[in-house]
Amino acid sequence: MNVEAAPAPVGAKYSDRAVGERRLGWKLVAPAVLVMLAVTAYPMLNALYLSLFSYRLTDPAGREFVGLRNYAVILGDSLWWQDVATTLTITIITVVVELVLGFGFAMVMHRIIFGRRGVRVSILIPYGIITVVSAFAWRYAFALDSGFVNQWFNLADKAWFGERWSALFVICLSEIWKTTPFISLLLLAGLAQVPEVLQEAAKVDGATWWQRLFKVTLPNMKAAILVAVLFRTLDAYRLFDNVFIMTSGAQQTETVSFLAYRQMISRTALGLGSAVSVLLFLSVLLIAALFIKGFKVDLSQVRGG
């Protein structure tokens, strides 16, 4: 991962001070690095170890070393692949919709002068709201007993959560509502980096709005867009809260995170559950690697997302 470094302080090489600075630098970052590794690397290694056993918490006596069998079971199970497909579907739909919507939002926020504060405040509310709250709000809006959506759109008694695609639709809506603000702010930062001179030059050349969008604006924002998409993709792939609240994974709306949770926490099947966790982690790594190698995402554009 290519990360842009801060400019080096002036004239600090090879002196005693440089050595001291280097030591100080390491000392200062050490706590952060140690804590980050302790809270992630240790549990991950533990999961890797547990995944080699058939081990049920309520049946400790039945613990047994099974090597890679858990992985074979998972990869040979259609439920795993169905959940992967569901997760990817949700990820792709939400990221694409959010990108288009977020770009529109960014354009508006970029241009607006009067009422800028109002727009920003309102857009930040979904960003800051608890995902579980968002999930409940959307669930109650679409539910047969408490909802108003069917009433408004004359849908009589359509059971939104009774069928796979309509349930996924509501899950995606909640997810999109909650996370578009994030993507739109990243894009707003990207928009601000498009040189105004180029826009003006294109205007002088008689380019239409669309031409300027595709020839000037978007190419100059490529880095920001890719970073936003990478962040949101990895985030969407972990989707859990909305599914838990809305369907509990029924009607084939289960995501990979939910599957791992169920094996691990509900069934207390620590072996099998750990194996799912490891595979989930590997698939996140794979997606990240694809983006960074495939699209050449420049992470120096990333600003503390």
Binding site: L144, D145, D157, K158, A159, F161, G162, E163, A250, Q251
Partner: peptide, 14 residues
Amino acid sequence: DPAISTSDEETARA
């Protein structure tokens, strides 16, 4: 019930 696949005791009662 139209929502048979999500019905529970309370929805049934209602």
